[in-house]
Write a protein that binds this DNA or RNA. Sequence first.
DNA 1: ACATGAATATTGGAT
DNA 2: ATCCAATTTTCATGT
Lengths: 272, 272
Amino acid sequence: MRPSVPGARAGNAGGSIQRVVAAQLFAPSAEELVAFLRAHLGVAGRLLQVGGEMEVLYHGRAASSADAGDYLLLLKPDGSLQVHAARGIKPLNWQPRTDETTIEIDDGRAVLVAQRTSPREIVRVTFTETAFALALAPRDEGGLTLRGSEAQMRRALARAPDLIELGLEVLDEELPVGVGGIDLYGRDVHGRLVVVELKRGKATHEAVHQLERYVLRIREETGAEVRGILAAPEITVPARSRLAERALEYREVTALPDEDDDDVVQPSLFDP
Amino acid sequence: MRPSVPGARAGNAGGSIQRVVAAQLFAPSAEELVAFLRAHLGVAGRLLQVGGEMEVLYHGRAASSADAGDYLLLLKPDGSLQVHAARGIKPLNWQPRTDETTIEIDDGRAVLVAQRTSPREIVRVTFTETAFALALAPRDEGGLTLRGSEAQMRRALARAPDLIELGLEVLDEELPVGVGGIDLYGRDVHGRLVVVELKRGKATHEAVHQLERYVLRIREETGAEVRGILAAPEITVPARSRLAERALEYREVTALPDEDDDDVVQPSLFDP
DNA sequence: ACATGAATATTGGAT
DNA sequence: ATCCAATTTTCATGT
């Protein structure tokens, strides 16, 4: 029978633990923390963690300063760094990539400095009271599959354009026009050109602007009649108004099927 | 003298550790993990962590499935959840808020289900081989101050509009016009109306579109001559071209001062 | 609750 | 390297 709470197990137990938890350290001194981090920063694949009281300074695209508080620092093997507070998805401070990370003693405290060259940025973490440090050695990751992206929606609608409108013929996906691209470009049952702007979430006035720009551009280029359709699962009230003012259209399509359905895109409830 | 690597210290050592590390568990069985998580999920302020092999399913705004792999799960006291892989700032899976979190044994494995009501979302984590679990009790956070935001830039430029152009008089900040607002609205030394669009980073064609919309709107409303200025530290080449085509202007301003300077906004290098 | 826009956005793709 | 658009964007703010 294994001990449970609190874990009284020593450093390297058997089983998976020594493969994932490479090393651990509780309530270290500044010197111990520095030695620990230096040792493991040099090992490829290590995910390091430090928990406890720390101060964080950042200077780069912006600049920030976090007073001493209890945070959780993660240093991933790809050089990314994040400092988490007790709330929210987003870290308090972070760095997507770092080119150089050093750990030194400064004024009796362990100080980690992570720098990036382009753009020139620096994060400086001063550990004022460390509760623990962990060195993890994650093994392989599993694959990730995502459904319901806009790209999937677009491909599904290109295969089944009747879900947007009966008789719609799709001529192009991601058709480049000036800057950016038209999600779906085609011709309706009466031969009129159709520009379709897709959104996987609630469409806002920005999506209407995008559609408007594309429609005007195609009208200029072809001189023909061009319809514009905004296809999304939802639309904000102001966006709906603006659409109506410009004689553009809205079509309801959902990015995800119901859980008991296999299709990626559902037909609109309002199709004739 | 404290022990260093690997930490052979038992669960509740003295000092800060028992205040931050409430409990720990290494290589637990499914039952032990369930008991641990249940016990600590009920305690306010606990930040829970589970490391090891797990599968993650998500269904909500989109849907995703991550095969078994070594990940790190964070459950914060505010109900947010994130599953981190070894790379990147962003979690593999996450949930900004959860309304209900349960932990059960299913087919011999510990399974955590976190649900959110609005929008209806669910994250299901199946622990296939747990290396460790930690219950942290973070104490107070320090304050965070940030410099270099667009709002700061705007306030600084409103106080010192000469940094944009000599003689510029600012009449309004965040002036609502249709949808959205004009960052800075004023009058130049010749009495012409001026619309200023600010960006704290590199300005793209979207910023030009925004400026264009505002300028056209103000021209319509006033019938007067209206200048449009895009103020940013950088601008993309296509955005610069589009500006020129529309007879709009670019002014270089930086969001952050040099490190040895106290001003928030630097004057343009090209000012007369 | 809804709408809006900033963000140290991050990330992936195309050129 | 640059530019662009999506993102389960998240987040703060105003209405």
